[in-house]
Design a protein around this nucleic acid. Structure first.
Lengths: 109, 109
DNA sequence: AGCCTATACATAGATAATCTATATATCACG
DNA sequence: CGTGATATATAGATTATCTATGTATAGGCT
């Protein structure tokens, strides 16, 4: 990481998959959603976002389709696959386990 | 990271500093403390631990002293400095802010 | 005596995830 | 006609973690 990360490393894939649970979104929209839902605390840089989406495609956790946006711009829409939905479940439970473990250390040390 | 990290990346320094708030500890003891307090969920590998301690020394957040353990082995004891205590405060609040932001995304996406 | 496990520190090199910086292109607005 | 927002993408740097390895000693077991 260059200086202070805008994200907790290791959580980006989970956040992306989560934003796709309601409806397909394009990359730019995913980044906006994460920023807005987090009240501007989390920022997904392009250099993190697009490589992450490539990873997710390669793993088969999302699929992509070129479409036009409402404002008539070309964009690549990502849809969660069933494998992706399963993966999200795994990542969510691992994350919660980690956070719970960290909390125990922080409370008892 | 090689495969699945044993830690959430970016949280190790905070965890180490926290384990030193009660009393000085040596490296091996820090790793044990984190493991035990987290109910074996978090494991600090030596290859992560010792470089992290060097970083903390360089930053002036801990100081080190060679001593003998209770079982008569030589070990390097680390003590939190006042700058380290301040840094811990910063890292704790940043971490909590991150977790809160992630939770908002996970709940509202 | 010899062996193994746990304790204790340390470094080299691999891997991976993030960042910064750059590039392209189009739309809407002033 | 320029600027800002929308939209995608890649190259390269930085950094944090891991795996693997090496050293050394204490204590217990056979």
């Amino acid at each position: 990481m260059a200086n202070k990360p805008d994200l907790l490393p290791g959580t980006l894939d989970m956040l992306i998959l989560k934003t796709l649970t309601r409806a397909p979104l394009h990359g730019y929209g995913i980044a906006q959603a994460i920023k807005q839902l987090s009240d501007e605390v989390l920022t997904v840089e392009e250099g993190s976002l697009y490589p992450a989406l490539q990873r997710l495609l390669l793993q088969g956790w999302v699929k992509a389709e070129w479409k036009m946006t409402e404002t008539n711009r070309r964009a690549r829409y990502y849809t969660l696959t069933s494998a992706g939905r399963k993966q999200l479940g795994i990542e969510l439970s691992e994350f919660e386990q980690m956070i719970a473990a960290i909390s125990r250390v922080l409370q008892n040390a």
